[in-house]
Design a protein around this nucleic acid. Structure first.
Lengths: 191, 191
DNA sequence: TATACAAGAATGAACGTTCATTCCGTTTTT
DNA sequence: AAAAACGGAATGAACGTTCATTCTTGTATA
């Protein structure tokens, strides 16, 4: 196994174990086992567990953003833009259940306390798309006059819940339902 | 300190520590310390940590339900009923941040896996009020024709997010905002 | 009323387990 | 052959739980 393959295997193993049963079920020895490396080897690639988890989180964030933005037309009508982003995010979570489960675990763990603010897609980096979208909507008076935080809550709250319910098998979100659900979210924020 | 005082102190200490910094920051020794009892004493009141946590959760559930239902008129118009329940829940969380934070931690911990399904107010016990509300709305054709799970997600998702954002200080939910936000949720589920 | 005693409650040091991390002998690469 | 990478046993810290001992409280006896 090549060097970079090994790093990848370690990250993959960590993602799987944590997503499947939470941090408490992912000790370093078990991660090493599933990655097919020795326990000590992990420490040649990551300073410690915190760093491993943190980099895993960053990896996922970096994979997610471009997928969500793909095909996004900043000049389209507001509603269309919202539906585009909303359905993309929900679809991404549904198609990448491990990513979703890990991110959720992360945000509810000691590892993720500092990241608390970026609610899965915060006002970080270049990804202020949602913020811009909402600010646009507010200035055009198309959205209800809520603080940004509330608009976020009305949009992301349902999305995260729907993704979780789908992944845990409580509902099957097909393409029709995905679109309809995000349209419903739009109804909650639009005037 | 009387016997029942002691039990109460233990439960209170556990609630505080877990709500403030999560399960990882609430070892039995620390709970004992904050309760002002010896570590061994806890085991005179609770078989083990799982049981302590479980009873704490049940306690909170029992305190919350009557508060939310108070003044609920099952014969009122559907919208009014929804607003009543929605605002009550959100207000309850805002006024009892420790309860909210504990319940959230619980649902995202090994302790709470089995309770997963009752999303803070599930189809348990006598508390099917929300379910009934939604079924009523569906049969009267006042609500969008979604599966119950999705109606739950559209309602609880925002509520939980708003409570969290308020408690963490990202937004200040006054009475006006509370009502407006729940009205917005109504817009997402109503036809 | 004062004293002795029993029974339950409370305690916290000690134990066994689990886990992240380190260390060192072995294997692979250069 | 030197250097780097590797594996997994060893280490020590943290935790939940136990248990021998101490404290408290209520009752019986003088």
């Amino acid at each position: 196994m090549s060097k970079s393959d090994k790093r990848e295997e370690i990250v993959r193993a960590a993602l799987e174990l944590i997503a499947e049963n939470g941090f408490h079920a992912a000790p370093m020895a078990m991660i090493a086992d599933r990655a097919g490396v020795g326990a000590g080897t992990i420490y040649r690639y990551f300073e410690n567990k915190d760093v491993l988890i943190g980099e895993l989180y960053k990896d996922l964030e970096e994979k997610m953003l471009p997928v969500i933005q793909e095909g996004y037309d900043i000049n389209a009508p507001l509603r269309e833009r919202f539906l585009h982003l909303g359905t993309r995010i929900l679809r991404y979570f549904i198609e990448n259940p491990l990513h979703f489960r890990f991110i959720e675990q992360f945000h509810n763990s000691p590892y993720g306390v500092e990241h608390r603010r970026d609610k899965i897609l915060g006002e970080k980096n270049g990804c202020n798309i949602f913020r811009e979208l909402f600010e646009d909507g507010l200035s055009q008076q198309l959205l209800k006059a809520f603080p940004l935080t509330i608009l976020f809550a009305l949009s992301f709250g349902p999305i995260v819940n729907l993704a979780r319910d789908h992944i845990l098998g409580f509902v099957v979100m097909d393409e029709t339902l995905i679109v309809a659900a995000i349209e419903a979210c739009w109804d909650s924020i639009s005037k």
